[in-house]
Amino acid sequence: MDDTSFFERTDQLKRRLYRIAFGYLGNENSALEAVDEAIFRGYGARKKLRRKEFFETWMTRILINVCKKELKRGKRETSVETIPEQAREQYDALPLKEAVRRLPEELRSVVVLRYYAGLTVAETAQRLGIPQGTAATRQRRALELLRLELKEDLE
């Protein structure tokens, strides 16, 4: 894949990639950085892509890996003091966003791709490399967990 076609294709994907990253990381700045990092990594590895029709799936997978790495890094870091802006974000956090963030990784990835990126069950399964039935089951389980958790928050 040449430089021009790579950048044209990534420009078309940026909004979707951002929604996915935001769903994983829950922070605008982190999501933007993750998208930039994924595009950078994709650019470096663009010649390894064998089938151009899988470009979107390939870039989504790179982004998911970047987000997972960022989440692991964030867990290892311990902050001595909370920055006021971060405290305000925590106070303003929506219960749904927090509930999604607390889902197990395999369930969260399905929710993020389905509802933040707007993919179908089939597209979600393809991006994650799992059978379509598994994606549907994970979606159902995730929604049940979210429903239970949000119901508890309201009571």
Score class of each variant (00 low, 15 high):
F6P: 07
S5R: 13
I39D: 00
E28D: 13
V35W: 04
E28K: 13
T82Y: 02
L154F: 07
I62W: 05
G26Q: 11
P104L: 05
L154H: 03
T137I: 13
S109M: 03
G74V: 09
A117K: 03
E123Y: 06
I83T: 07
G118V: 13
V112H: 01
R114N: 12
K97T: 15
S109Y: 01
T57M: 09
F40L: 05
Y115Q: 06
R16E: 14
K75E: 07
T57G: 12
R16T: 14
T57I: 00
K48G: 01
A93L: 05
C67N: 01
N29K: 10
R46T: 01
T82P: 00
F7S: 14
G23P: 01
R147Q: 15
A45E: 13
E53T: 01
F40A: 07
A99Q: 00
R46G: 05
E98W: 00
I64P: 01
E8C: 11
E98C: 04
K14M: 12
Q126Y: 09
L71W: 06
L25K: 04
K151C: 02
I130A: 02
L32C: 04
E155S: 03
Q126F: 08
R88D: 05
A122E: 12
I39E: 01
E89N: 02
Q126H: 12
E81D: 10
T60S: 09
K97L: 12
G26Y: 12
R127V: 05
K97N: 14
D2L: 08
A31D: 06
R102Y: 10
Y24Q: 03
L94G: 03
V100E: 03
E89T: 12
I20M: 14
E8S: 15
S79D: 11
L96Y: 10
A34V: 03
V80F: 11
E105D: 12
G42T: 00
K75R: 09
K48F: 09
V111H: 00
V80M: 14
E37F: 09
L150K: 13
P131G: 10
D153P: 09
Q90K: 06
T78L: 12
R16V: 10
Y43K: 04
L145H: 14
Y115H: 11
E144R: 13
K72R: 11
F40D: 02
R9D: 07
N65H: 09
A122R: 12
T134W: 02
T78P: 04
G74N: 08
T57F: 11
A45T: 10
S30R: 11
L145D: 12
L145S: 08
